[in-house]
Write a protein that binds this DNA or RNA. Structure first.
Lengths: 371, 371
DNA sequence: AATCAGTGTGCGAACGTTCTCACATTATAG
DNA sequence: CTATAATGTGAGAACGTTCGCACACTGATT
């Protein structure tokens, strides 16, 4: 066992050695209130000699600020969250804040647990990718208790807090428009599209038709479907529900299966649009397994730019989400709120870049025009 | 500004409502010491009604335990650390611990800052991928103060603490042996190989010759070079220093440049062994840019298995590091130490798997120069 | 000479828990 | 019936800081 907790040096001991009160020593070391230069030097010297290190726990207990931000990510192992975290981390570190990290696995129960832990640890703020856009009583409670919340990647409709997203809707519409411009008429979509409160895909298409949807508070994959539908409508092309590959779960296996379904259709799509990185990898695997040539047999644009897309031949065109930017922006919003910034909730929609590569070509099976 | 810090419910208020002392309420809610069932119910009811949530800061201040583990990763954005973190996170979460995450960017100054912050925040332990295997006074100090440390990915020689690594040496030797078995005689290595305390590559080769090296306390890329050299020696093949691509820095650009150097050699290697994921991606990019066919023109084995290696054609053979396992193991060692486990430092060397794929072939009979 | 603002210091009370002790009460054994 | 142990409770002191207040000293302005 030995001596576990070595004799920690406290302010009191430093004060004693410097011959001042603990209050004075505290003022010098904590850098608040008044103190003479002479005293400052004396105290600092004593602290140095004793190897004093402040106990931030005690400070936090009294100030009510921990200089720690809680983050609830979906899965830190995914490139998406890893990059976002990097952004968050860079900005917060520069401001002297620490980061308490948790994973929700996009499950509400995990998220609840995580939020509770973080709040009990008295984080100064919460950056979260909410796993459920409706059941968010815990987030409302957090806000009500005066703990700033910043949403990432998706917004909770009735939660009036800052949020940072990517403009999925526009980016997706743009991708489809490019495929359409290249002559494609049958474009397959492979997307997660997990449960939507409004019902199934057919319901969603109807809702898009009536324009009754608030695109901003949908899950990203639904936003991307929204953009897909809009682009087709703009081009006056029909939306064939059979071309909408709803994977239903965030799994590479399921995505591969759905991709194969699309590619085995009698009237198969001439272009494919996997709506995120995982779907892209799964789709790519299915495509190579079927020995389809890109772009001759199939054009491809992916949402999310993974490293391999730039160095396989041909390169795969992709939407490049500004992930670290997103983390940085979220962190900055958070720091501003912690600093006491007041005002209406800010919702940032970052504009992704587009990486043009050789995966788009005119469809081979050219429709023969009526003569 | 409004009411920032909403009226938090404390144990005292719960106690008052339940009609008991704070000590008793504390015992019930903190689940320590004795208390009657009847009292327990009463206190819990009062706590429930008031919406009491414990303040872990206060608890930690007095118990001296924060149930938080500090992690110093190199760069959370890299798949390596992201996966390791996932493992750490899973194990610690199950034990009710939080994770305070920092990035060092493999820079000692950042690491020092990070360790200081974490320690001031009174973490119960430190899991760290040390960025410098010699200048580690801060780690020695941490250990001396009774704060458990677990090393990840590389070991500090004179620091007697637990550590979890991958058996780079054996894995690398195995890869080279496979290439040799396939008939390769000139095998190129592309590795980071940043500063080594003993000097340059020539010095290293001499040191290997004399057997004066402790492979376990080298940086991974040097360990992999060690394995490379050993495998060649075992096969009685010469070690040509020109085939050792020392990138010198952890950069894709530099790795690409080094790869190109190797591939443009008059007597160029017939097989390539990029010694980690970043090097692999950079090498792959260079290879495709030169329109070399794998495995006809060049055989390839990579250290680190990236997702694209399995679905491009041909697949790329790779060493699969057990990354989350590594994180999990580190976390478990840490929890054991925190629980008071005594005993000599444990150093785990995890065995990587090998993913056999179609990137290895016999070298083409003769290199025919263009005429 | 009196007033004031600015500067500098120490005492003791916070912060919200747990811990140590003293002291009841009850159960078990001799 | 006593001795011993186990169980249960509360008062008050920790933990290591910061904060409010009282007071003291300076110098400039009335």
């Amino acid at each position: 066992m030995s001596d576990r907790q070595r004799d920690k040096i406290t302010i009191a001991e430093v004060a004693k050695r410097a011959g001042v009160s603990t209050a004075t020593a505290g003022r010098v070391l904590g850098d608040y209130g008044y103190s003479r230069q002479e005293i400052k030097d004396k105290v600092r010297k004593a602290a140095e000699e004793l190897g004093y290190r402040p106990n931030l726990l005690a400070r936090s207990l009294i100030t009510g600020k921990t200089k720690t931000i809680g983050v609830v990510a979906g899965d830190i192992q995914s490139p998406f969250y890893a990059s976002v975290m990097r952004g968050v981390s860079d900005v917060t570190r520069a401001a002297g804040f620490g980061i308490l990290l948790t994973n929700s696995d996009e499950r509400l129960d995990r998220e609840l647990e995580a939020v509770q832990l973080l709040r009990e640890k008295q984080v100064d703020g919460l950056i979260i990718a909410p796993s459920d856009l409706t059941g968010s009583a815990h987030l409302h409670a957090t806000v009500r208790d005066g703990c700033p919340v910043v949403l990432i990647d998706r917004l909770v409709r009735d939660l009036a807090v800052d949020g940072v997203c990517v403009d999925n809707h526009a980016a997706s519409r743009d991708c489809i428009a490019r495929l359409v411009a290249a002559g494609h008429r049958r474009i397959g979509l492979v997307a997660e599209l997990e449960g939507w409160e409004g019902g199934d895909v057919e319901d969603f298409l109807r809702a898009v038709e009536t324009g009754s949807l608030d695109s901003a508070t949908l899950f990203p994959s639904w936003q991307r479907l929204y953009g897909y539908v809009e682009a087709l409508k703009e081009a006056r092309l029909p939306v064939d529900p059979a071309l909408i590959g709803r994977v239903g779960t965030y799994s590479a296996e399921a995505a591969g299966k759905e991709t194969r379904r699309l590619l085995h259709m009698a009237d198969r799509p001439t272009a494919l649009f996997p709506a995120d990185g995982l779907m892209a990898a799964a789709a790519m695997e299915a495509i190579t397994a079927l020995h389809l040539q890109i772009p001759e047999d199939l054009s491809l644009i992916c949402f999310d730019d993974l490293d391999w897309m730039s160095f396989i031949r041909p390169g795969i065109a992709a939407v490049v989400q500004p992930l670290t930017d997103m983390g940085e922006a979220a962190a900055r919003l958070m720091l501003a709120r912690i600093a006491g910034e007041d005002g209406p909730p800010q919702r940032l929609a970052l504009k992704p870049k587009f990486a043009e590569r050789g995966s788009i070509a005119r469809p081979r099976a050219v429709e023969i025009p009526p003569s």
